[in-house]
Design a binder for these strands. Structure first.
Lengths: 216, 216
DNA sequence: CATTCCATAGGGCAATTGCCGTATTTACGC
DNA sequence: GCGTAAATACGGCAATTGCCCTATGGAATG
């Protein structure tokens, strides 16, 4: 099996170190390297036939967390392993929330990196033991709200929330109308308005975004 | 360094398998073996100069989760790695809540087990990649109602999970097909099968149910 | 060696959804 | 009192979805 891999990292020295580590293994081919998130997204736009990305966190233009979120939104099939020198709780938590499939430190030895990549491709998660411990602690203690800041504030009306709640259960327009004692037309109109406010174009997206913003 | 280790497990066959695996390494000495939790607690009472316990979950008298909780309460310095054949979400979550420092499956190879023990002693967490992924998913999705009434175990194939993941981002059939390099027909067939397995009839319901079961 | 998944792929059809109009009534703030 | 927002409601149309059918090759399991 040939694994199509990409690296997004602004530090050329560390990129070279990663390349050296991967050079031992002929089942991995490095498709491209980007020096920041937006450059990486551009490369993905061209060709999203890719298995996995090794992603740095600290980068100019678009950092690793934001980039991870965007990649996972558009190309959820692409696995992402965060590969960084820092391992503070906030970064780890945000990376996980953004959808990262693993989190390794840059001093990782070649074998562990290779194994981690293979395991991630097979649906597992690659994790440094010290980071694994941090995730366990995060799971144990309810996560502080300090990590969850909602930049844009979206205001939905009470009725729109009602509709959204029903939407999230997977109910159809007609059933929602029946439940809320409304005409289906009204439900549709509400949903149209919700879409505009949330800037989405489907039920799932609406529910997804609403949950992220604690609206439902 | 000599690591003082104990095993709590009622299955003598598996205990023997573990002993065999550890016999390769002379930095680990097995201090005692208990066949259930209360027996283990009694041994600890006698002498709690111990570094680490390999703990089974399914046991008579006092199960692994309860035992872990009690050991950690009284002897927090003793590390505990859950070593079990089952890896369902509820067990993993409860074990973590109880204070386990790691979670490995019994089929683990000797080197990984040894490495996991050393890393745990050094403050890290030993985790099988598939279990690491489950913890990430638990961290991503709110844990609350997840374990209320989902006794049924739903098995989706790897490919079905891939498709479901894309669905959860709100992507359409055609985009998903494009991302996974599949024909739209295939994506539709996968989704049909997912619906049947989950017993649902729409994208949202599928995503909703899948999240409740920690499938995505 | 048979059987049962799994992954792949296509055709067809009815229902639902997403998006564009327009329109009326109620209510709240300035 | 007048503008604005919210809530209500209808019609139309293209695209998407949900569901039925069939079919093949490979992997796994017994």
């Amino acid at each position: 099996m040939n694994i199509k891999l990409a690296i997004i990292d602004d530090n050329t020295f560390l990129v070279k170190a990663i390349k050296d580590k991967l050079s031992f293994f002929d089942d991995i081919s490095i498709k491209w390297i980007a020096l920041d998130g937006s450059q990486g997204l551009a490369k993905l736009e061209e060709n999203h036939n890719l298995d996995i990305i090794l992603m740095d966190i600290e980068m100019p233009v678009l950092n690793g967390i934001e980039t991870t979120q965007m990649v996972k939104q558009k190309y959820p099939h692409v696995k992402i392993i965060m590969l960084t020198v820092f391992d503070n709780d906030e970064n780890i938590f945000k990376a996980i929330q953004a959808g990262a499939d693993g989190y390794l430190l840059k001093e990782v030895d070649p074998e562990t990196l290779h194994k981690g990549i293979l395991e991630t491709i097979n649906g597992g998660a690659a994790m440094n033991p010290s980071i694994a411990m941090k995730t366990l602690k995060l799971l144990r203690n309810p996560v502080d709200e300090k990590f969850l800041e909602n930049k844009e504030d979206i205001k939905l009306s009470k009725r729109e929330i009602d509709v959204l709640e029903q939407l999230s259960k997977g109910l159809s327009y007609t059933v929602i109308a029946d439940n809320l004692i409304l005409s289906p037309s009204t439900v549709r109109k509400h949903i149209e308005n919700i879409y505009k406010k949330l800037q989405v174009h489907s039920k799932i997206e609406a529910v997804h975004k609403a949950k992220r913003h604690n609206l439902i």
